[in-house]
Amino acid sequence: MLARQTRAEFLKLLRVPAFSVTSIVLPSMFYAFIGLGQASQPLYKGSAVTFGQYFLASMALYGVANVMVLGFGISLANERGQKQDLLMKSTPLPPAVFFAAKALSALAIALISIVVLSIFASLAGHVQLTTNQWATLLFRAMVCSIPFIGLGFALGYLAGPNSAPAVTNLIYLPTAFASGLFFPLNLLPNFLQQIAPYLPLYRAAHLVWNSVGVPFDDISNDWLYMAGYMVAFFLLALWAYQRDQGKKFN
């Protein structure tokens, strides 16, 4: 049942080009626009890490979190708008299977987006990482996407079908920018630098940048933050879900 449900959810996501193309191609496109020109230059003076490596890690994270927040958020809001939940609710499909399938299919799309980006960055940008770095980057980006599943899920239940694309983009794009995913933080206005440490994407960014060699004193704090965000987002999602169910099915 889970396998079939996951396959169906995956096909649903893949067949909406507005979603699948943006999720899979957009990170590579940003990489082409922003990363390629300066890929071989050092990230800052004297750094062993190149801009190409930094931006690969940034876009990998941007891509996976994008799948979770926008994919989950918009598709759930749309399904609610079309009352797909009504028919599902009268079948014996356990809600846990439904959500697990959605999460697994989103993770699969996220994985594809990282693979596509990695191939693009190594071929076009000549980015080189050790095997260990590749593996660490992949692992950390995927793990860091998990809290965002909770956020996307919450937004999907809180936003209406018409407002969901706007709401999710309004939340996601500025925070991605403010977390230093597009430009290193020291190039951003001062007030953003003050806010950044509290943003989940900033914490996740530390972890992925670190995986390609950007030195940080201590990343265990960032892991702790991510765990905290995960709990908070999933609680928010649970609350939003129960609120929606209470309205509709009571």
């Binding site: 169906a8 096909l11 649903k12 067949r15 909406v16 399904e79 079309q82 009352k83 797909q84 009504l86 028919l87 009268s90």
Partner: peptide, 13 residues
């Protein structure tokens, strides 16, 4: 088995 008024199904399957 049920048929409901106004329920939706995924269009992309």
């Amino acid at each position: 088995g049920v048929m409901l008024q106004e329920s939706g199904v995924p269009g992309m399957l």
